[in-house]
Design a protein around this nucleic acid. Structure first.
Lengths: 207, 207
DNA sequence: CTTGACGGGAAACGCCCGTTCTCTAGACTC
DNA sequence: GAGTCTAGAGAACGGGCGTTTCCCGTCAAG
């Protein structure tokens, strides 16, 4: 079937395109990067790109989907061997490592949401990504043995999003450690009785 | 000097341009809105726009600067007549009202930061906006009579940013009330002794 | 060696953008 | 009423975009 090209089996051309798209879209923004730049960086022809991804919008969607999967996988791997509230704190340690990377350019999903007001598919993927992250935080919150894990997860989500935005917009690498200390404070002294009037997002979803 | 045009004195043409730019840039994104669309919406000619704002980048900067001023003014007005921790909670009440507006499209400064990776001036204005908001939260935190107002302000800032992003990306209007309850919890049981190892951002700035 | 599929390179197409320039109509000054 | 200035309408220009199409060279199959 597939000829033994100078490339590995499967279609590594598609991989190279997606790698280049990820690098360029994330660092420069989706709208600022043209198809020509992607194919030049990937070392493929335009025909190859359009054979695997039928349009730029589809390429953006594939970029976001793979990023979502890898983000969640890596985060879960960092939390897998931890117990209790350490699982929660590990999320913020991971954020700190991320913010310190020189290529850090904020959250790709937030950026795309703010950039592509017109592309509903991309915005849907961004929403799904946030919901997956929220679910991951809910599992961690349950492991932290607090009385109201869903409320804690909602608050942790706010801290995570706030830390990412602060690290990016303000260029503040220490946002993660501050969010970590805030998360610890919330776990230390969360009094769920204080928040009975505030519906948790998980409760909303069940309605 | 100025002839008695069908417009009010001062240059109301510049105002109309800025109004149109704000409406369009905020709702559709800066890159998705062309100059032609702005002048059509403002009912002026291209020459008028370029006479008052010498380029699209300058127009974007003027748009962000006016939005920053109005945002801070309105927020301060809502907090002026309140005392103590009510000043802090009023911030999140204001967020709730904002999120409920049908035109709500997230934080313009976050959107611009994610959209215009190439425009340093716009990103600088976004950073200044966040720093102004942080200073406002610091004043409110001092009024809340907590032991470490700067740390509290840092944490409130994370909650505010997280709420805005969550309300926008996830379409969750209730993010503000959840952030409000988290802020109340942090004010209730903040134990500054727990956070001595975490430098506050205000401390960073003084170094 | 011939054939044919594959894929990179690049031209071409139609469209939109930011910016500049020209034309024209109206209103104020004198 | 003639002159002058303002400002809107729109053409023009150079450039970039997403997408399609064509031209080749390369390499496996027969």
């Amino acid at each position: 079937m597939t000829p033994l090209s100078p490339e590995t089996p499967d279609s590594s051309a598609a991989q190279r395109v997606l790698d280049a798209a990820e690098r360029l879209f994330y660092s420069r923004g989706v709208q600022a990067v043209g198809i020509d730049m992607v194919v030049a960086d990937a070392g493929v022809g335009l025909k190859t790109l359009y054979a695997h991804y039928r349009s730029k919008d589809r390429l953006v969607e594939a970029y976001l989907r793979r990023l979502n999967q890898r983000f969640l996988d890596r985060l879960q791997a960092r939390m897998a061997h931890l117990q209790g509230r350490d699982q929660v704190l590990a999320v913020f340690d991971a954020l700190g490592d991320w913010f310190a990377e020189p290529e850090f350019s904020g959250c790709a999903f937030i950026n795309v949401a703010g950039e592509l007001h017109t592309n509903p598919a991309a915005r849907a993927i961004a929403r799904e990504h946030k919901q997956s992250l929220r679910a991951l935080l809910q599992r961690a919150a349950r492991a932290a043995a607090v009385t109201d894990p869903d409320t804690l997860a909602d608050r942790l989500m706010l801290l995570v999003e706030g830390a990412v935005v602060t690290a990016y917009v303000e260029g503040d690498e220490h946002a993660a450690v501050r969010a970590r200390s805030a998360a610890a404070a919330l776990m230390d002294c969360a009094r769920p009785a204080h928040c009975d009037d505030v519906p948790s997002r998980a409760a909303d979803r069940l309605q």
